[in-house]
Write a protein that binds this DNA or RNA. Structure first.
Length: 367
DNA sequence: AACCAACGCAACCGCAAGCTC
DNA sequence: CGAGCTTGCGGTTGCGTTGGT
């Protein structure tokens, strides 16, 4: 017995939206809101569209204050950093980038950032994209500047002149790795706008949203605690369990009090360690073949950020000041990125072989 | 000029969680 | 408490555009 379809597909138009449809939808929502029911909305307006389609169109295109294209270097960094830490949770990532939609970010990641990471550029960036992006940016920037955001235009100018940077087969340059960082609390970007990590409630909500178990009694997350705080060499170094680049949403952070689980399938550390029977889809290793470490990812490779064992079947992950030093045999080469992270990630299980994909990264301006 | 492959983006699809009755 | 419905999300697809040959 299947589910009832959300709409009568026979009477529903698909494909690109016409300006008239856009106008109808936009004006209705601006006047009346969504009414809390997307399914009923198209009938009210007289649109032959699926409610889901209306919602998507509104969220991804018609919603005010949206920005399209023209991702800045800083945004690149944020996306990459968050992707490393939480995986393909585009909605969460989008929440950190005001004006960006999860779809946009997802597309941007899939079409550009991932390739940037892979160091694979089969073709020069095309003019169309650059032109449109710049044009869009200028348009947006003009709008923003009229709202008093004077930084926007300069950002556009920077972007329009950074097409060469986009050709660089490397991770965004501002992700600075190693070189023992000072114990500095990294300011989160955009924390002054939109949903962010800058308050306890938001953090709690995020943790809960991420599927975690949150024990507010013991864990008092702070901005520094949740996200990026560098630790100096002498400080305790914690771990964050992250499956980098997993499209199966397997990025997880385990903690005594906090567990992030990206999917409901996660039932414990063991599952993670066992990889759900090797159920991990594109591992970081797959995304970044060994030969590519020298192709823009050296910064991950240096300083033990990535341990790559000559024996391709075994990766030894040394955990700083942790009770467990683990040897993990996944049957394939894996990577580990050390993470100096004050979000304590002690693993719950005793003697659990830890799959420590630990990470360390910084945002620009972290100095 | 024609063809083709790559690219980028909008939109669709299916699943899972949350909500309501 | 369970069934049905809605929403939100992530993955995937379709298609127009562009650049290379």
């Amino acid at each position: 017995m299947g589910r009832a379809p959300c709409c009568d597909k026979a009477n529903v138009k698909k494909g690109p939206w016409s300006p008239e449809e856009d106008a109808k939808l936009k004006s209705y929502i601006e006047k009346h809101g969504t009414g809390g029911n997307w399914i009923a909305l198209p009938q009210k307006i007289g649109l032959k569209r699926c409610g889901k389609s209306c919602r998507l169109r509104w969220l991804n295109y018609l919603r005010p204050n949206l920005r399209h294209g023209g991702f800045s270097e800083e945004e690149d960094n944020i996306i990459c950093s968050l992707y490393i830490s939480i995986g393909s949770r585009w909605s969460v990532i989008a929440a950190q980038l005001p004006g960006r939609t999860d779809n946009d970010i997802k597309n941007y990641w899939n079409t550009r950032l991932k390739k940037k990471l892979l160091g694979k550029h089969r073709r020069e960036p095309r003019n169309r994209g650059s032109y449109n992006s710049v044009r869009q940016e200028i348009s947006d920037a003009n709008r923003r500047s009229s709202d008093g955001d004077s930084s926007s235009l300069s950002m556009v100018q920077e972007n329009s002149s950074t097409s060469q940077q986009q050709q660089q087969p490397c991770w965004p340059q501002n992700i600075n790795m190693p070189v023992p960082p000072p114990p500095v609390v990294v300011p989160l970007p955009y924390t002054d706008q939109g949903p962010g990590f800058n308050d306890q409630d938001s953090i709690k909500k995020l943790l809960i949203k991420l599927g975690g178990r949150f024990s507010g009694d013991y864990y008092q997350p702070t901005l520094e605690g949740l996200n990026l705080q560098f630790s100096s060499e002498g400080q305790q170094v914690y771990q964050e369990q992250v499956h980098v680049g997993s499209s199966s949403s397997s990025a997880c952070i385990a903690n005594n009090e906090v567990q992030f689980a990206q999917t409901g399938q996660y039932s414990g550390v063991d599952d993670l360690v066992q990889g759900q029977g090797g159920n991990f889809t594109p591992s970081f290793e797959e995304m970044v073949p060994s030969s590519d470490y020298s192709d823009g990812l050296e910064f991950l490779y240096n300083e033990g950020m990535i341990h790559k064992i000559a024996d391709s079947t075994t990766t030894t992950t040394t955990c700083h000041q942790n009770t467990n030093t683990t040897t993990t045999n996944w049957g394939e080469t894996t990577t580990s990125i050390y993470h100096h992270h004050s979000l304590a990630s002690h693993f719950q299980g005793q003697g659990v072989a830890q799959e420590c994909a630990l990470q360390e990264f910084s945002y620009p301006g972290a100095q």
